[in-house]
Design a protein around this nucleic acid. Structure first.
Lengths: 341, 341
DNA sequence: ATTGGTATTGAGAGCGCTTCCAAATTATAC
DNA sequence: GTATAATTTGGAAGCGCTCTCAATACCAAT
């Protein structure tokens, strides 16, 4: 059965091309009996409408793009990405969109990809994974090109763009408050890079929790990490000089490094130093770690991102929207809460 | 600058639509001076040709699909996938193709995705990640629909389909031969599932290496694993009863589980039991493991897969082709080779 | 100048669909 | 029964591009 067209189906059923089109697109004004005959013919012939023709005529491709700029290296180590992609792919399936995937590796790629993304009629909109300062340029270009976009993870300059983000400030605030409630008073933090919004926001949550209890924010208790295990390890070594009784790490990986440093210094977790991480990676639940941490709903995050984008596309309203997702504190062993019972 | 068309550029430059199209597509017969004027106008206006119109007129979308069926769960744990996707995405960028991404989660998805994939004019071809028995149906459907496809990882029934695969038999053969050369004689193996081609092939390489030296294949030294750490652990416990002096695990993760079991039994690696894994995950290089293993060129694997598919598309020749990639044995501590020096 | 050949250009017919509009049909009210 | 409105259909004009074919421009050779 070589390429069938609408016309073929129309001829077969004895109606006009328009009618078949109406059936295909679920328009109301088609007689029930006719609709069924058309549907039967489509089913029987295995006809699939030509997507290009459809996109050309209707100015809608039912395809959205996912851009992963900058973050490429993390893409291979951080389970965040597969989960995010899962949520996005699921939503696309359910909403009947197709997902086009762009991995921006270098500057050269950016040009190629940008030109592909901005081809009229190919994408209805794009999702841009971001949260890092370096992603600013591509977001700006997309804004200039008036391509509907949703930034996944709040961008550094967030005016004029729609984005979806985790409530990082509140999550960190909750984590640190939890430590305070457990009686810890010299709480250190290993932050994410200042170049990243998660770094900034989680630190802000830390500061907020301390401030709320009128505790001083001691610069000696704050070190900027880089989201790696080694980074966490070295940061913790630095922090130990300031004799903290707890540490809030902005990621689980860094928390694992921190625990290693604490133990090497002859101290115990959580007795001497309580630890709270962020992410709830599988490794956090492992028996010899039992990390108290913040869980992010990454899959639904991706799902909601797609919903937001498709809403944007369908509404045609360019005014920016924002969605903030809630996180959850997962209490395990390293914060010392369980031992107190 | 709202949607420009070819015609607009043509009018601006004072030539016909055809000429602009020729410039856009790099046709030879355009006067140099005209070509430059057209290019200048395109540059200046920021014109991008409409992809849908192009696809409709030329019957080529310059888009390929990547289908990840079945394997979804592994997608989140195995670094193989991100690396594969990286290679694929890179190749797509370089060859000027767009990548459409399909994650098949359940049966329902399969229907939706299949109908999207088989829409005429949307995809020029598809890459199907496979190697598992359960992927057979979707591959068959794609063959029936005459959609150009390349299976990534040899499928169970490989007649009539083009595929690219690692040379798993030879890789396993090399790994086991290496152990034999080191004087090991009771070599056990933890295989992959019998449902997967990698499981079958790596076991075949093991058998081949033994056979070549006229060593018996002892069923007590072969256990079927499931590519998980726990699986490797339990398999090794079973194997220890047969007193092996070495074990070849069909994946690093299983090798790690095996090492745990060996050590718990009070035996030393590599002195009492040598271990060789497969994959060369980052964890294999970690200081406290130092796993001898087989490295697969996963990124280039993905890259080659795209090249193969695009060749297939461009040639229009439907006869199946096969590409086999070489692997490399990485000798570290667990095989005992370094200690002998 | 004329011829033949080649390089360059434009006209125009699609590609397969959506969608507006008017025509045809049917339902409803009088 | 007719008049009117509502519903269902078909005709036809695009959507923005490619590509064949014929026409024109250019070149060198006679």
């Amino acid at each position: 059965m070589p390429d069938l067209t609408l016309e073929d189906i129309a001829a077969k059923v004895g109606v006009s091309r328009s009618t078949v089109s109406r059936v295909l697109n679920g328009h109301p004004n088609v007689r029930k009996e006719v609709r069924e005959r058309v549907l039967a013919a489509i089913e029987q012939t295995g006809f699939h409408p030509n997507a290009a023709a459809r996109a050309l005529a209707s100015q809608r491709s039912w395809t959205i793009g996912l851009l992963l700029p900058h973050s490429v290296s993390l893409f291979f180590t951080d389970p965040y990405y597969p989960h995010l992609v899962k949520g996005i792919a699921q939503a696309c399936n359910h909403l009947d969109y197709t997902l086009a995937f762009f991995l921006v590796d270098d500057k050269d790629d950016e040009e190629r990809i940008f030109s592909r993304v901005s081809r009229n009629g190919f994408l209805d909109g794009v999702l841009v994974q971001s949260g890092h300062h370096g992603d600013q340029r591509i977001i700006g270009r997309l804004v200039d090109a008036r391509i509907p976009q949703v930034v996944v993870g709040r961008p550094m300059r967030s005016d004029n763009v729609s984005y979806i983000d985790m409530d990082n400030v509140h999550a960190a605030y909750t984590a640190v408050s939890h430590l305070l409630r457990l009686g810890r008073r010299r709480i250190a933090t290993i932050t994410g890079p200042e170049q990243s919004t998660v770094g900034v926001d989680r630190k802000a949550g830390y500061v907020k929790a301390l401030g709320e209890r009128d505790l001083p924010v001691d610069p000696a208790l704050i070190v900027e990490g880089d989201f790696t295990e080694m980074g966490g390890y070295y940061c913790m070594q630095t922090l130990l000089a300031a004799r903290p009784d707890a540490v809030f790490a902005a990621s689980d990986i860094m928390a694992v490094g921190a625990i290693r440093a604490i133990r090497e210094a002859g101290l115990r977790v959580p007795e001497d130093v309580a630890v709270v991480g962020f992410d709830d990676l599988p490794l956090a639940a492992m028996t010899d770690i039992q990390l108290t941490t913040v869980r992010q709903p990454v899959v639904s995050f991706g799902y909601r991102a797609v919903e937001l984008l498709t809403d944007l596309i369908q509404s045609g309203d360019p005014s920016p929207r924002h969605v903030i997702m809630d996180t959850k504190l997962i209490v395990r062993g390293t914060c010392g809460a369980l031992a107190r019972k």
